[in-house]
Design a protein around this nucleic acid. Sequence first.
DNA 1: TCTGAAATATAATGTGC
DNA 2: GCACATTATATTTCAGA
Lengths: 145, 145
Amino acid sequence: MDDVDRALIAELQRDAAQAYALLGRAVGLSAGAAHDRVRKLRERGVIRRTTVEVDPAALGQGVLAFVMVDSSAWMGEASESFAAIPEIQEAHVIAGTASVLVKVRTATTEQLQDVLRRLYAIEGVNGTQATVVLETFFERPVRAD
Amino acid sequence: MDDVDRALIAELQRDAAQAYALLGRAVGLSAGAAHDRVRKLRERGVIRRTTVEVDPAALGQGVLAFVMVDSSAWMGEASESFAAIPEIQEAHVIAGTASVLVKVRTATTEQLQDVLRRLYAIEGVNGTQATVVLETFFERPVRAD
DNA sequence: TCTGAAATATAATGTGC
DNA sequence: GCACATTATATTTCAGA
């Protein structure tokens, strides 16, 4: 995991569809060497997968909200309960008054309300505190360099 | 933007490195037809780019926190001020008491503290309320199906 | 661990349906 | 808009340094 690996990752985050020859040139390596390093980064799990970034609004998910989920019980084993709600994009156990923070995308605020209803149905959930996003400044990949 | 397009996007989110022949088979299309639809989805901006998903911990960013940024002034034009802090992965203008919600990744809590310091330095920022993530249940792509 | 080249597979394009 | 065929291009592998 040296500077060349980090540069490769940064390039791949920018465009994972480019040829290895180009990728190698960007970091000062031959196509074969770039290929080899990327393969190892995948094997070691540093690179988890190649994926596409989509426009949520184009998929009919123009509403973004963060929801603090308050609970009475220990939520450390409740991962599946949250994963079962498809509108939830992220779920994190947090330190503080609430116990879980979730990121939710829906088409409408009515659907957001329905997600809150389903969150209340999870065993141990006491309350929710939803914060609706008015504008997203930016969402960018994990910093590689 | 029909069900086939949505299925294509879901498949590409799972693995954007697969061949068009496989991709087409997964949604009941020939390789050429799949290729054509994906090209159009890119042109229309539904698919923004092909990228790689990385393990933040492997890049030395094991600390994740969400920070509510309170402000006195209107923060609607402050995008660049937040973007200038590389540890900030996402920044959203929100409805509610705070005005901006940011997602931050650092190596240590000391570095998180330093990010808070830099947030305070932004014109109009009154205070911050950081919530450290203890465990991430999941982070998954935008729902396509 | 890299380079360079050869074999193999895929992408991209165009034609007809 | 889809399927098929053809060309161009990239991936993948391997020998050698």
